[in-house]
Amino acid sequence: MILADENLPPRMIELLRDSEIEVFSIKENHRGINDQEVINLSKSPPRIILTEDKDFGEWVFAHHEESISVILLRYKRPDLDLIADIVIDLIKDKGSSLFGKYVTVTLGKIRIREIYL
């Protein structure tokens, strides 16, 4: 269900997997690919891109990239476990309803935006 961008710390992936969330890691499987290739991988099978890279917002809102879903994480490294808990709860609570959304997660707020094309 989750496509972990290469910039995510291994600890984040570990915490997600420990919570029984399916994670496909770019770092483990396709290190060094560009954003467009990440997007292509997210489409088949459909996966939500989990990233710290704001460029995916540009792909969605400026380039109108179709059929992608993104969770953007904004936090400081010491807060990694806290943000992971928020993401785990979000995924377990919302599940597949996160497809077609651009979600920004911070310690204080979760913003879910529908992706309209």
Rank of each mutant, 00 (worst) to 15 (best):
I2E: 01
L3A: 05
A4G: 02
E6D: 01
P10H: 12
R11W: 01
M12F: 09
M12R: 07
E14G: 07
E14A: 13
L16S: 09
R17I: 09
R17P: 07
S19Q: 02
S19F: 01
S19L: 12
E20M: 15
I21T: 04
E22S: 04
E22I: 04
S25G: 00
S25K: 03
I26W: 05
I26Y: 09
E28C: 06
N29A: 02
G32L: 13
G32Q: 04
N34D: 08
D35W: 00
D35H: 08
Q36Y: 13
V38I: 03
V38D: 08
I39N: 00
I39E: 00
I39A: 01
N40A: 05
L41H: 03
S42M: 03
S42Y: 03
S42R: 15
P45D: 06
P45H: 01
P46H: 09
P46T: 08
R47L: 01
R47N: 02
I48E: 05
I49G: 05
I49K: 12
T51H: 10
E52P: 08
E52W: 15
D53L: 13
D53S: 03
D53G: 04
K54G: 10
D55R: 04
G57E: 02
E58W: 11
W59Y: 07
V60K: 05
V60L: 15
A62L: 12
H63Y: 09
H64W: 07
H64Q: 08
E65M: 14
S67A: 06
I68P: 05
S69Q: 00
V70I: 06
V70L: 07
I71M: 01
L72R: 01
Y75F: 02
Y75P: 10
K76P: 13
R77T: 11
P78L: 04
P78C: 04
D79T: 15
D79P: 14
D79Q: 15
D79C: 09
L80R: 13
L80T: 03
L82A: 07
L82Y: 14
I88V: 03
L90T: 15
L90A: 15
I91L: 13
I91Q: 13
K92Y: 03
D93V: 12
G95K: 02
G95D: 11
S96R: 15
S96C: 14
S96H: 06
S97G: 09
S97D: 08
S97E: 15
L98Q: 04
L98S: 01
G100C: 02
G100F: 02
K101V: 12
T104N: 06
V105N: 04
T106K: 10
L107D: 13
G108F: 08
G108Y: 15
G108D: 10
G108C: 10
K109D: 09
I112H: 03
R113I: 11
L117T: 10
